[in-house]
């Protein structure tokens, strides 16, 4: 399972990177969102999968799944949400101000 998950993570990272390298803002923002999905899965996976029960003391007497990656991911989810929201609004404002959502056009250069 873990190996499979890590290969999935690799694919998600590749897709996210490819989107970030594109020219349109929406694609770049999507790329960051996909990268954060990939990282969350990666953190969870390297902590070990299905090694025990749900980390709730009231549910069982152990063993429990590693709770530390879960806490880290919880923080990361919220922060990636915040940055995604901020980037979206930044894109909106940039488009409104400059009339373009393409980074090459924004740079003011026509050639590659």
């Amino acid at each position: 399972m873990e190996s499979l998950m890590i290969i999935l993570v690799g694919i998600l990272v590749s897709v996210g990177t490819y989107l970030i390298l594109s020219r349109q803002m929406i694609r770049i923002i999507l790329g960051t969102a996909i990268l954060s999905h990939a990282v969350h899965l990666l953190i969870l996976t390297v902590g070990g999968l299905k090694k025990g029960g749900v980390p709730l003391l009231s549910q069982s007497d152990g063993p429990y799944t590693d709770a530390l990656p879960q806490a880290l991911i919880l923080t990361a989810i919220v922060i990636s949400f915040a940055t995604t929201a901020f980037l979206l609004v930044l894109a909106y404002r940039t488009y409104k101000t400059n009339g373009s959502a393409d980074f090459h056009e924004l740079r003011g250069m026509s050639d590659e």
């Binding site: 873990e2 190996s3 890590i6 290969i7 993570v9 690799g10 694919i11 998600l12 990272v13 590749s14 897709v15 990177t17 490819y18 390298l21 594109s22 990939a38 990666l42 996976t45 390297v46």
Partner: peptide, 21 residues
């Protein structure tokens, strides 16, 4: 070029992830 770079990045993450396990 972008595709190759993306694949390299993804492969790096996967390979290191597998070893970390």
């Amino acid at each position: 070029t972008n595709g190759v770079i993306s694949l390299l990045v993804g492969a790096t993450v996967s390979v290191i992830g597998l070893a970390v396990m």
